[in-house]
Write a protein that binds this DNA or RNA. Structure first.
Lengths: 240, 240
DNA sequence: CGCAAGATTGAAGTACGTCAATTCCAGTGG
DNA sequence: CCACTGGAATTGACGTACTTCAATCTTGCG
Protein backbone atom coordinates (compact mmCIF):
# COMPACT_ATOMS: atom_id res chain seq x y z
CA UNK A 1 0.00 0.00 0.00
CA UNK A 2 2.11 2.84 -1.33
CA UNK A 3 -0.29 5.60 -0.31
CA UNK A 4 -0.98 4.45 3.25
CA UNK A 5 0.77 7.42 4.85
CA UNK A 6 -0.65 9.94 2.43
CA UNK A 7 -4.18 8.66 2.96
CA UNK A 8 -3.74 8.62 6.70
CA UNK A 9 -2.59 12.23 6.56
CA UNK A 10 -5.34 13.39 4.23
CA UNK A 11 -7.92 11.76 6.47
CA UNK A 12 -6.86 14.13 9.24
CA UNK A 13 -8.65 16.61 7.03
CA UNK A 14 -11.54 14.65 5.62
CA UNK A 15 -12.59 11.01 5.34
CA UNK A 16 -12.09 9.51 1.89
CA UNK A 17 -14.18 6.95 0.06
CA UNK A 18 -12.79 3.58 -0.92
CA UNK A 19 -12.80 4.70 -4.54
CA UNK A 20 -10.86 7.85 -3.79
CA UNK A 21 -8.21 5.89 -1.94
CA UNK A 22 -7.96 3.53 -4.84
CA UNK A 23 -7.51 6.38 -7.32
CA UNK A 24 -4.60 7.65 -5.30
CA UNK A 25 -3.07 4.23 -5.07
CA UNK A 26 -3.49 3.66 -8.80
CA UNK A 27 -1.79 6.95 -9.61
CA UNK A 28 1.44 5.85 -7.91
CA UNK A 29 2.80 3.38 -10.34
CA UNK A 30 6.49 3.99 -10.59
CA UNK A 31 8.43 3.66 -7.31
CA UNK A 32 12.13 4.37 -6.93
CA UNK A 33 14.68 4.27 -4.17
CA UNK A 34 17.11 7.05 -3.35
CA UNK A 35 20.26 6.78 -1.30
CA UNK A 36 20.96 9.11 1.58
CA UNK A 37 22.33 12.42 0.26
CA UNK A 38 21.07 11.70 -3.23
CA UNK A 39 18.98 14.41 -4.84
CA UNK A 40 15.38 13.67 -5.69
CA UNK A 41 14.92 16.90 -7.64
CA UNK A 42 17.31 19.73 -8.35
CA UNK A 43 16.89 23.46 -8.47
CA UNK A 44 16.10 24.34 -12.06
CA UNK A 45 14.41 21.03 -12.87
CA UNK A 46 11.04 20.90 -14.54
CA UNK A 47 9.83 17.39 -13.78
CA UNK A 48 6.55 16.30 -15.28
CA UNK A 49 5.59 14.20 -12.33
CA UNK A 50 5.05 14.76 -8.65
CA UNK A 51 7.00 12.84 -6.01
CA UNK A 52 5.30 11.18 -3.08
CA UNK A 53 7.55 10.17 -0.23
CA UNK A 54 6.70 6.65 0.92
CA UNK A 55 9.58 5.79 3.22
CA UNK A 56 12.42 7.76 4.78
CA UNK A 57 13.07 11.47 5.24
CA UNK A 58 13.89 14.11 2.66
CA UNK A 59 14.51 17.83 2.86
CA UNK A 60 14.05 20.94 0.77
CA UNK A 61 17.26 22.90 0.59
CA UNK A 62 19.15 25.58 -1.27
CA UNK A 63 22.87 26.05 -1.67
CA UNK A 64 24.31 29.46 -0.83
CA UNK A 65 27.44 31.04 -2.33
CA UNK A 66 29.32 30.51 0.93
CA UNK A 67 28.58 26.79 0.88
CA UNK A 68 25.79 26.82 3.46
CA UNK A 69 22.96 24.42 2.73
CA UNK A 70 19.93 25.73 4.57
CA UNK A 71 17.16 23.17 4.91
CA UNK A 72 13.72 24.75 4.57
CA UNK A 73 11.44 21.78 5.13
CA UNK A 74 11.43 18.18 6.20
CA UNK A 75 9.46 15.70 4.16
CA UNK A 76 8.29 12.48 5.75
CA UNK A 77 6.20 9.61 4.43
CA UNK A 78 2.90 10.85 3.07
CA UNK A 79 4.33 14.18 1.97
CA UNK A 80 4.12 15.32 -1.64
CA UNK A 81 7.36 16.92 -2.66
CA UNK A 82 6.61 19.25 -5.47
CA UNK A 83 3.04 19.96 -6.36
CA UNK A 84 4.32 23.48 -7.06
CA UNK A 85 6.19 22.50 -10.20
CA UNK A 86 2.90 21.75 -11.83
CA UNK A 87 2.54 25.49 -12.27
CA UNK A 88 5.91 27.11 -11.72
CA UNK A 89 8.45 27.38 -14.46
CA UNK A 90 11.18 25.55 -12.62
CA UNK A 91 12.15 24.38 -9.15
CA UNK A 92 13.61 27.22 -7.10
CA UNK A 93 15.20 24.77 -4.67
CA UNK A 94 16.34 21.17 -4.48
CA UNK A 95 14.97 18.20 -2.60
CA UNK A 96 17.46 15.72 -1.27
CA UNK A 97 17.13 12.41 0.54
CA UNK A 98 18.16 12.75 4.19
CA UNK A 99 17.94 8.99 4.65
CA UNK A 100 17.52 6.19 2.19
CA UNK A 101 14.09 6.92 0.70
CA UNK A 102 11.36 5.22 -1.23
CA UNK A 103 9.57 7.63 -3.57
CA UNK A 104 6.53 7.14 -5.78
CA UNK A 105 6.22 9.09 -9.01
CA UNK A 106 2.82 10.41 -9.98
CA UNK A 107 2.46 11.90 -13.42
CA UNK A 108 1.17 15.44 -13.62
CA UNK A 109 -1.73 14.24 -15.74
CA UNK A 110 -2.72 11.67 -13.13
CA UNK A 111 -2.92 14.36 -10.48
CA UNK A 112 -5.06 16.47 -12.77
CA UNK A 113 -7.32 13.53 -13.39
CA UNK A 114 -7.83 12.82 -9.71
CA UNK A 115 -8.56 16.44 -8.98
CA UNK A 116 -11.13 16.41 -11.74
CA UNK A 117 -12.80 13.27 -10.43
CA UNK A 118 -13.09 14.16 -6.77
CA UNK A 119 -13.81 17.55 -5.33
CA UNK A 120 -13.08 16.20 -1.89
CA UNK A 121 -9.69 14.78 -2.83
CA UNK A 122 -8.83 17.99 -4.56
CA UNK A 123 -9.62 19.93 -1.41
CA UNK A 124 -7.65 17.49 0.72
CA UNK A 125 -4.58 17.83 -1.47
CA UNK A 126 -4.81 21.58 -1.42
CA UNK A 127 -5.25 21.47 2.34
CA UNK A 128 -1.98 19.56 2.61
CA UNK A 129 -0.10 22.26 0.71
CA UNK A 130 -1.67 24.94 2.92
CA UNK A 131 -0.47 23.12 5.99
CA UNK A 132 3.03 22.97 4.50
CA UNK A 133 2.87 26.72 4.08
CA UNK A 134 1.71 27.18 7.66
CA UNK A 135 4.65 25.10 8.83
CA UNK A 136 6.97 27.31 6.84
CA UNK A 137 5.55 30.40 8.56
CA UNK A 138 6.05 28.84 11.95
CA UNK A 139 9.65 27.93 11.11
CA UNK A 140 10.26 31.51 10.09
CA UNK A 141 9.01 32.65 13.48
CA UNK A 142 11.09 30.04 15.24
CA UNK A 143 14.33 30.80 13.45
CA UNK A 144 13.92 34.55 13.73
CA UNK A 145 12.52 34.91 17.21
CA UNK A 146 13.22 31.99 19.50
CA UNK A 147 16.41 31.08 21.36
CA UNK A 148 18.23 27.89 20.44
CA UNK A 149 16.74 25.66 23.12
CA UNK A 150 13.18 26.56 22.17
CA UNK A 151 14.02 26.16 18.49
CA UNK A 152 15.05 22.57 18.95
CA UNK A 153 12.22 21.81 21.34
CA UNK A 154 9.72 23.32 18.95
CA UNK A 155 11.03 21.26 16.06
CA UNK A 156 10.81 18.08 18.12
CA UNK A 157 7.21 18.82 19.13
CA UNK A 158 6.27 19.43 15.52
CA UNK A 159 7.94 16.34 14.14
CA UNK A 160 6.43 14.17 16.86
CA UNK A 161 2.93 15.34 15.94
CA UNK A 162 3.58 15.05 12.23
CA UNK A 163 5.03 11.57 12.65
CA UNK A 164 2.04 10.60 14.76
CA UNK A 165 -0.34 11.81 12.03
CA UNK A 166 1.08 9.29 9.58
CA UNK A 167 1.49 6.48 12.08
CA UNK A 168 5.22 6.82 12.54
CA UNK A 169 5.34 7.57 16.21
CA UNK A 170 5.40 5.12 19.04
CA UNK A 171 3.46 7.01 21.66
CA UNK A 172 5.95 9.67 22.75
CA UNK A 173 8.93 8.64 20.68
CA UNK A 174 9.75 8.81 17.01
CA UNK A 175 12.65 8.37 14.68
CA UNK A 176 14.61 11.53 13.94
CA UNK A 177 17.20 10.17 11.53
CA UNK A 178 19.20 13.37 11.12
CA UNK A 179 22.68 14.43 12.03
CA UNK A 180 23.18 17.41 14.30
CA UNK A 181 24.67 19.20 11.33
CA UNK A 182 21.43 18.76 9.39
CA UNK A 183 19.40 19.91 12.37
CA UNK A 184 21.63 22.95 12.64
CA UNK A 185 21.26 23.76 8.94
CA UNK A 186 17.52 23.63 9.50
CA UNK A 187 17.28 25.84 12.53
CA UNK A 188 19.93 28.29 11.41
CA UNK A 189 22.55 27.39 13.97
CA UNK A 190 26.03 25.89 13.98
CA UNK A 191 26.60 22.20 14.50
CA UNK A 192 28.45 22.85 17.72
CA UNK A 193 25.66 24.90 19.15
CA UNK A 194 23.06 22.37 18.04
CA UNK A 195 25.04 19.77 19.95
CA UNK A 196 25.13 21.85 23.10
CA UNK A 197 21.45 22.64 22.78
CA UNK A 198 20.57 18.99 22.36
CA UNK A 199 22.55 18.17 25.46
CA UNK A 200 20.79 20.90 27.35
CA UNK A 201 17.35 19.50 26.52
CA UNK A 202 18.58 16.12 27.68
CA UNK A 203 19.99 17.69 30.82
CA UNK A 204 16.64 19.32 31.56
CA UNK A 205 15.14 15.86 31.25
CA UNK A 206 12.87 16.97 28.45
CA UNK A 207 14.01 14.38 25.94
CA UNK A 208 16.10 11.27 25.54
CA UNK A 209 17.75 10.46 22.26
CA UNK A 210 19.55 7.32 21.30
CA UNK A 211 20.22 5.71 17.96
CA UNK A 212 18.34 8.44 16.08
CA UNK A 213 15.21 7.87 18.14
CA UNK A 214 13.92 10.74 20.24
CA UNK A 215 11.70 10.17 23.24
CA UNK A 216 9.75 13.06 24.66
CA UNK A 217 9.28 12.54 28.38
CA UNK A 218 6.37 14.88 28.88
CA UNK A 219 4.95 16.44 25.74
CA UNK A 220 3.01 19.05 27.68
CA UNK A 221 6.14 20.20 29.42
CA UNK A 222 8.19 20.29 26.21
CA UNK A 223 5.41 22.22 24.47
CA UNK A 224 5.32 24.74 27.25
CA UNK A 225 9.09 25.03 27.32
CA UNK A 226 9.19 25.58 23.55
CA UNK A 227 6.16 27.84 23.37
CA UNK A 228 4.66 25.30 21.01
CA UNK A 229 1.09 25.88 19.88
CA UNK A 230 -0.08 23.08 17.58
CA UNK A 231 -2.79 25.11 15.87
CA UNK A 232 -0.64 25.77 12.80
CA UNK A 233 -0.60 22.07 11.96
CA UNK A 234 -4.37 22.16 11.40
CA UNK A 235 -4.84 18.56 12.42
CA UNK A 236 -8.40 18.96 13.67
CA UNK A 237 -10.32 18.16 10.52
CA UNK A 238 -12.18 20.08 7.90
CA UNK A 239 -14.01 23.34 8.31
CA UNK A 240 -17.63 22.43 8.81
CA UNK B 1 -10.38 49.71 -11.10
CA UNK B 2 -10.06 47.81 -7.85
CA UNK B 3 -8.26 44.83 -9.33
CA UNK B 4 -5.65 46.71 -11.37
CA UNK B 5 -2.71 45.55 -9.25
CA UNK B 6 -3.96 42.00 -8.93
CA UNK B 7 -4.47 41.72 -12.69
CA UNK B 8 -1.09 43.21 -13.37
CA UNK B 9 0.48 40.68 -11.08
CA UNK B 10 -1.44 37.71 -12.46
CA UNK B 11 -0.45 38.72 -15.96
CA UNK B 12 3.18 38.16 -15.00
CA UNK B 13 2.06 34.57 -15.12
CA UNK B 14 -0.40 34.45 -17.96
CA UNK B 15 -2.35 36.92 -20.07
CA UNK B 16 -6.01 37.20 -19.17
CA UNK B 17 -9.00 37.79 -21.39
CA UNK B 18 -11.17 40.86 -21.01
CA UNK B 19 -13.93 38.67 -19.61
CA UNK B 20 -11.66 37.15 -17.01
CA UNK B 21 -10.53 40.57 -15.85
CA UNK B 22 -14.13 41.64 -15.59
CA UNK B 23 -15.06 38.61 -13.49
CA UNK B 24 -12.33 39.51 -11.05
CA UNK B 25 -13.44 43.11 -10.92
CA UNK B 26 -17.07 42.11 -10.42
CA UNK B 27 -16.16 39.83 -7.54
CA UNK B 28 -14.74 42.73 -5.51
CA UNK B 29 -17.83 44.54 -4.45
CA UNK B 30 -17.32 45.55 -0.88
CA UNK B 31 -14.31 47.79 -0.22
CA UNK B 32 -13.20 48.94 3.22
CA UNK B 33 -10.46 51.09 4.68
CA UNK B 34 -8.26 50.11 7.58
CA UNK B 35 -6.15 52.40 9.71
CA UNK B 36 -2.48 51.76 10.31
CA UNK B 37 -2.08 49.14 13.04
CA UNK B 38 -5.65 48.00 12.68
CA UNK B 39 -6.16 44.28 12.23
CA UNK B 40 -7.67 43.04 9.00
CA UNK B 41 -8.08 39.49 10.27
CA UNK B 42 -7.21 37.91 13.58
CA UNK B 43 -5.76 34.58 14.53
CA UNK B 44 -8.68 32.25 15.16
CA UNK B 45 -11.03 34.01 12.74
CA UNK B 46 -12.98 32.08 10.16
CA UNK B 47 -13.98 34.74 7.67
CA UNK B 48 -16.17 33.70 4.79
CA UNK B 49 -14.56 36.06 2.35
CA UNK B 50 -11.10 36.62 1.01
CA UNK B 51 -9.34 39.99 1.33
CA UNK B 52 -7.63 41.64 -1.60
CA UNK B 53 -5.25 44.44 -0.76
CA UNK B 54 -5.87 47.41 -3.08
CA UNK B 55 -3.83 50.16 -1.47
CA UNK B 56 -1.23 50.28 1.29
CA UNK B 57 0.86 47.65 3.02
CA UNK B 58 -0.20 44.92 5.42
CA UNK B 59 1.66 42.15 7.20
CA UNK B 60 1.08 38.65 8.46
CA UNK B 61 2.14 38.34 12.07
CA UNK B 62 1.87 36.28 15.20
CA UNK B 63 2.16 37.36 18.80
CA UNK B 64 4.56 35.44 21.03
CA UNK B 65 4.26 34.95 24.79
CA UNK B 66 7.18 37.33 25.35
CA UNK B 67 5.42 40.09 23.43
CA UNK B 68 7.42 39.77 20.22
CA UNK B 69 5.37 40.29 17.07
CA UNK B 70 7.24 38.52 14.29
CA UNK B 71 6.12 39.56 10.82
CA UNK B 72 6.09 36.65 8.39
CA UNK B 73 5.03 38.32 5.17
CA UNK B 74 4.42 41.69 3.60
CA UNK B 75 1.28 42.18 1.59
CA UNK B 76 1.17 44.91 -1.03
CA UNK B 77 -1.50 45.94 -3.52
CA UNK B 78 -2.57 43.01 -5.65
CA UNK B 79 -1.95 40.46 -2.89
CA UNK B 80 -4.70 38.18 -1.65
CA UNK B 81 -4.52 37.90 2.10
CA UNK B 82 -6.11 34.66 3.04
CA UNK B 83 -7.05 32.21 0.35
CA UNK B 84 -6.01 29.60 2.89
CA UNK B 85 -9.01 30.14 5.14
CA UNK B 86 -11.18 28.78 2.40
CA UNK B 87 -10.00 25.35 3.50
CA UNK B 88 -8.40 25.64 6.90
CA UNK B 89 -10.42 25.58 10.06
CA UNK B 90 -9.23 28.93 11.34
CA UNK B 91 -6.52 31.53 10.80
CA UNK B 92 -3.29 30.49 12.50
CA UNK B 93 -2.00 34.06 12.38
CA UNK B 94 -3.25 37.63 12.10
CA UNK B 95 -3.02 40.15 9.31
CA UNK B 96 -2.59 43.78 10.29
CA UNK B 97 -2.44 47.01 8.34
CA UNK B 98 1.08 48.43 8.32
CA UNK B 99 -0.16 51.62 6.69
CA UNK B 100 -3.64 52.91 6.04
CA UNK B 101 -5.05 50.31 3.67
CA UNK B 102 -7.83 49.86 1.20
CA UNK B 103 -9.09 46.29 1.11
CA UNK B 104 -11.65 44.60 -1.14
CA UNK B 105 -13.72 41.73 0.19
CA UNK B 106 -14.43 38.82 -2.09
CA UNK B 107 -16.90 36.25 -0.92
CA UNK B 108 -15.70 32.68 -0.79
CA UNK B 109 -18.46 31.69 -3.18
CA UNK B 110 -17.36 34.29 -5.72
CA UNK B 111 -13.84 32.86 -5.72
CA UNK B 112 -15.24 29.39 -6.24
CA UNK B 113 -17.35 30.64 -9.11
CA UNK B 114 -14.41 32.28 -10.86
CA UNK B 115 -12.29 29.20 -10.47
CA UNK B 116 -15.06 27.15 -11.99
CA UNK B 117 -15.47 29.50 -14.94
CA UNK B 118 -11.85 29.90 -15.94
CA UNK B 119 -9.19 27.26 -15.82
CA UNK B 120 -6.61 29.91 -16.62
CA UNK B 121 -7.65 32.23 -13.81
CA UNK B 122 -7.72 29.33 -11.44
CA UNK B 123 -4.16 28.47 -12.40
CA UNK B 124 -3.07 32.09 -12.10
CA UNK B 125 -4.50 32.39 -8.60
CA UNK B 126 -2.86 29.18 -7.55
CA UNK B 127 0.39 30.38 -9.06
CA UNK B 128 0.21 33.47 -6.86
CA UNK B 129 -0.10 31.39 -3.71
CA UNK B 130 2.83 29.24 -4.80
CA UNK B 131 4.94 32.35 -5.25
CA UNK B 132 3.96 33.46 -1.75
CA UNK B 133 5.20 30.12 -0.48
CA UNK B 134 8.45 30.48 -2.40
CA UNK B 135 8.96 33.90 -0.80
CA UNK B 136 8.40 32.36 2.60
CA UNK B 137 11.10 29.78 1.90
CA UNK B 138 13.52 32.48 0.84
CA UNK B 139 12.81 34.49 3.98
CA UNK B 140 13.51 31.43 6.06
CA UNK B 141 16.88 31.11 4.35
CA UNK B 142 17.57 34.79 4.81
CA UNK B 143 16.71 34.94 8.48
CA UNK B 144 18.52 31.75 9.32
CA UNK B 145 21.62 32.04 7.20
CA UNK B 146 22.50 35.57 6.16
CA UNK B 147 24.13 38.35 8.17
CA UNK B 148 22.15 41.48 8.95
CA UNK B 149 23.40 43.61 6.06
CA UNK B 150 22.52 40.98 3.48
CA UNK B 151 19.18 40.41 5.13
CA UNK B 152 18.15 43.99 4.69
CA UNK B 153 19.61 44.23 1.21
CA UNK B 154 17.82 41.08 0.20
CA UNK B 155 14.52 42.36 1.47
CA UNK B 156 14.95 45.60 -0.41
CA UNK B 157 15.74 43.79 -3.66
CA UNK B 158 12.67 41.64 -3.25
CA UNK B 159 10.30 44.44 -2.44
CA UNK B 160 11.61 46.54 -5.31
CA UNK B 161 10.87 43.73 -7.76
CA UNK B 162 7.50 42.99 -6.21
CA UNK B 163 6.55 46.65 -6.26
CA UNK B 164 7.67 46.87 -9.86
CA UNK B 165 5.47 43.90 -10.79
CA UNK B 166 2.35 45.75 -9.68
CA UNK B 167 3.42 49.12 -11.00
CA UNK B 168 4.42 50.64 -7.68
CA UNK B 169 8.03 51.31 -8.40
CA UNK B 170 9.53 54.36 -9.98
CA UNK B 171 12.45 52.84 -11.80
CA UNK B 172 14.87 52.10 -8.98
CA UNK B 173 12.94 53.52 -6.10
CA UNK B 174 9.82 52.49 -4.24
CA UNK B 175 7.91 53.31 -1.13
CA UNK B 176 8.84 51.28 1.93
CA UNK B 177 6.40 52.69 4.47
CA UNK B 178 7.67 50.76 7.47
CA UNK B 179 9.36 51.71 10.69
CA UNK B 180 12.73 50.25 11.50
CA UNK B 181 11.04 48.37 14.32
CA UNK B 182 8.72 46.66 11.84
CA UNK B 183 11.63 45.85 9.56
CA UNK B 184 13.47 44.38 12.53
CA UNK B 185 10.46 42.25 13.54
CA UNK B 186 10.45 40.95 9.99
CA UNK B 187 14.08 40.03 9.68
CA UNK B 188 14.46 38.76 13.21
CA UNK B 189 16.69 41.52 14.50
CA UNK B 190 16.47 44.28 17.08
CA UNK B 191 15.40 47.79 16.16
CA UNK B 192 18.78 49.17 17.10
CA UNK B 193 20.61 46.74 14.91
CA UNK B 194 18.21 47.34 12.04
CA UNK B 195 19.03 51.02 12.35
CA UNK B 196 22.76 50.41 12.24
CA UNK B 197 22.37 48.04 9.33
CA UNK B 198 20.30 50.55 7.41
CA UNK B 199 22.96 53.17 7.98
CA UNK B 200 25.62 50.77 6.82
CA UNK B 201 23.84 50.18 3.50
CA UNK B 202 23.57 53.92 3.10
CA UNK B 203 27.22 54.30 4.00
CA UNK B 204 28.20 51.76 1.36
CA UNK B 205 26.23 53.88 -1.07
CA UNK B 206 23.94 50.99 -1.92
CA UNK B 207 20.71 52.79 -1.08
CA UNK B 208 19.27 56.14 -0.18
CA UNK B 209 16.19 56.39 1.97
CA UNK B 210 14.21 59.44 2.77
CA UNK B 211 10.61 59.92 3.75
CA UNK B 212 9.89 56.20 3.57
CA UNK B 213 11.09 56.04 -0.03
CA UNK B 214 14.05 53.79 -0.78
CA UNK B 215 16.21 54.35 -3.83
CA UNK B 216 18.49 51.57 -4.98
CA UNK B 217 21.54 53.10 -6.63
CA UNK B 218 22.65 50.06 -8.56
CA UNK B 219 20.35 47.08 -8.40
CA UNK B 220 22.98 44.73 -9.77
CA UNK B 221 25.41 45.72 -7.07
CA UNK B 222 22.83 45.42 -4.30
CA UNK B 223 21.77 42.01 -5.64
CA UNK B 224 25.33 40.84 -5.63
CA UNK B 225 25.96 42.28 -2.18
CA UNK B 226 22.85 40.56 -0.82
CA UNK B 227 23.31 37.30 -2.71
CA UNK B 228 19.92 37.95 -4.24
CA UNK B 229 18.74 35.53 -6.90
CA UNK B 230 15.33 36.54 -8.25
CA UNK B 231 14.37 33.09 -9.48
CA UNK B 232 12.16 32.41 -6.46
CA UNK B 233 9.81 35.22 -7.46
CA UNK B 234 8.90 33.31 -10.62
CA UNK B 235 8.19 36.45 -12.57
CA UNK B 236 9.04 34.99 -15.98
CA UNK B 237 5.65 33.77 -17.04
CA UNK B 238 3.92 30.45 -17.28
CA UNK B 239 5.49 27.10 -17.91
CA UNK B 240 5.10 26.45 -21.60
C1' DC C 1 5.38 75.85 20.37
C1' DG C 2 5.13 71.43 22.21
C1' DC C 3 4.47 66.64 21.83
C1' DA C 4 5.10 61.87 20.65
C1' DA C 5 6.80 58.59 17.46
C1' DG C 6 10.57 57.33 15.30
C1' DA C 7 15.59 57.50 14.28
C1' DT C 8 20.12 57.62 16.03
C1' DT C 9 23.94 56.95 19.25
C1' DG C 10 26.84 54.88 23.06
C1' DA C 11 28.18 51.46 26.32
C1' DA C 12 27.98 47.03 28.13
C1' DG C 13 26.46 42.18 28.06
C1' DT C 14 25.54 37.62 25.85
C1' DA C 15 24.14 34.00 22.84
C1' DC C 16 25.95 32.43 19.49
C1' DG C 17 29.81 31.13 15.87
C1' DT C 18 34.50 29.40 14.68
C1' DC C 19 38.41 26.55 15.08
C1' DA C 20 40.57 22.69 16.52
C1' DA C 21 40.83 18.65 19.28
C1' DT C 22 39.20 14.54 21.13
C1' DT C 23 35.98 10.86 21.86
C1' DC C 24 32.57 7.72 20.35
C1' DC C 25 30.79 4.20 17.49
C1' DA C 26 29.15 1.41 13.58
C1' DG C 27 30.93 -0.80 9.84
C1' DT C 28 34.75 -3.27 7.38
C1' DG C 29 38.43 -6.13 6.43
C1' DG C 30 41.67 -9.33 7.98
C1' DC D 1 37.67 -11.60 17.33
C1' DC D 2 40.10 -7.40 16.85
C1' DA D 3 42.41 -3.53 14.79
C1' DC D 4 41.25 0.08 11.57
C1' DT D 5 38.53 3.62 9.57
C1' DG D 6 35.54 7.55 8.79
C1' DG D 7 31.57 9.93 10.09
C1' DA D 8 29.29 11.82 13.78
C1' DA D 9 29.09 13.57 18.59
C1' DT D 10 31.30 16.03 22.10
C1' DT D 11 34.39 19.33 24.35
C1' DG D 12 37.25 23.63 25.21
C1' DA D 13 38.92 28.17 24.18
C1' DC D 14 38.13 32.21 22.07
C1' DG D 15 36.05 35.70 19.00
C1' DT D 16 32.03 38.49 17.42
C1' DA D 17 27.57 39.78 15.66
C1' DC D 18 24.23 40.66 17.72
C1' DT D 19 20.94 42.30 21.95
C1' DT D 20 19.67 45.31 25.67
C1' DC D 21 19.20 49.47 28.05
C1' DA D 22 19.13 54.08 28.21
C1' DA D 23 19.86 58.48 26.31
C1' DT D 24 19.44 61.94 22.87
C1' DC D 25 18.17 63.85 18.67
C1' DT D 26 14.89 64.62 14.76
C1' DT D 27 10.63 65.38 12.66
C1' DG D 28 5.90 65.60 11.39
C1' DC D 29 1.88 67.47 13.27
C1' DG D 30 -1.93 69.53 16.12
Amino acid sequence: MRTRSLIRKLECFSALSQAEKQWLEDATTDVREFERRQDIINEGDRPDHVHLLIEGWAGRYKVLPNGDRPIMAFLIPGDLCDVQVTLLTAMDHSIGALTRCKVAFIHRAAIGEIIGKSERLSRALWWATLVDEAILREWLVTVGHRPADQRLGHLICEMLLRAKAVGLSDDNSFELPLTQEELGDTMGMSTVHMNRTMMELRGQDLITSKDKRVTVHDLGRLMEFSQFNPNYLHQQGERS
